[in-house]
């Protein structure tokens, strides 16, 4: 039995791909709100450079924890500017952080009674759950709370709030109908996957702080020059056009 396992293990190691001549894909950690936009950006980048991109999606807080504990990401697209700042001061960065997009918040619902023009009174009179991202970990969640405070909706909505682990889960709560409405990133409702699903309304920018989204080139990027290429590409007109299509404002 033991010899059998050893042989099995040995043959596994022998067949493992180990070819340094092939260009390694750029390993990117991406905040959940950018997932659809980034998929387009990455596809465009791969088309024009031939370099493959390997993306992992999670909330910025979780990505930060992984990076601090040695995750081999080369580039990090955060949902805020504070997490990259923290990582920089912890010595994780190769270059200073750079803003790649400004995020916008929308209120999204699949309820037929949803009224985009009167969303404040609708929200107040509705009885269903309202989904937000975890405000401690995600800027879109924290800014949603600010919107509620700005319109004095906190008292009526707070008891009905449910938190997604990240903004994508908040969107999923709305999409499945489990929550009646949700404050989500505009980039999510503009994604092709979400077309024809419910209705949404822009939240006036005056009611919350701009969601400044920074990216950070990380230490492991030193071994992969293509990571720097992707970092620069994200500030190119081609990438900007894609980001704008997903409702982001540009820095």
């Amino acid at each position: 039995m033991r010899r059998y396992l050893l042989t099995l293990f040995g043959s596994l190691i022998a067949t493992m791909p180990c070819n340094p001549a092939l260009a390694a894909p750029v390993k990117v950690a991406v905040a959940a709100n950018v997932q659809y936009a980034f998929a387009d950006v990455a596809a465009d980048f791969t088309r024009s450079t031939g370099v493959a991109v390997e993306a992992s999606y999670a909330s910025s807080g979780k990505i930060a924890t992984q990076i601090l504990n040695g995750a081999p990401f080369e580039l990090f697209l955060s949902a805020d500017d504070e997490t990259p700042r923290k990582l920089s001061s912890a010595g994780m960065a190769q270059l200073p952080a750079k803003t790649y997009a400004l995020g916008a918040l929308v209120l999204w619902s699949k309820d037929p009674a949803f009224d985009g023009k009167q969303w404040q009174s609708w929200l107040k009179s509705a009885s269903g759950k309202v989904a937000i991202a975890n405000p401690q970990a995600a800027p879109y969640g924290a800014e949603a709370l600010r919107v509620l405070a700005y319109y004095r909706l906190t008292d009526s909505v707070k008891p009905r709030l449910v938190q997604g682990d990240n903004i994508a889960q908040a969107a999923q709560f709305v999409d499945s109908g489990a929550a009646q409405a949700g404050f989500v990133a505009k980039a999510l409702v503009l994604a092709p996957q979400m077309q024809g699903k419910g209705r949404w309304v822009d939240i006036p920018a005056a009611s919350y702080q701009p969601i400044v989204q920074d990216m950070l080139l990380l230490k492991p990027a030193a071994a992969n020059p293509d990571a720097r290429k992707l970092f620069d590409y994200l500030s190119s007109p081609a990438a900007h056009a894609i980001l704008q299509r997903y409702g982001y404002r540009l820095p």
């Binding site: 807080g61 979780k62 924890t65 759950k129 401690q136 970990a137 449910v162 709560f173």
Partner: peptide, 19 residues
């Protein structure tokens, strides 16, 4: 839905604090 007192159990609280 991570609601304090309703669904934020200990295992979720750990996950949150790590995040």
């Amino acid at each position: 839905g991570n609601i304090p007192g309703v669904s934020r159990v200990a295992s979720i609280a750990i996950y949150n604090e790590v995040e």
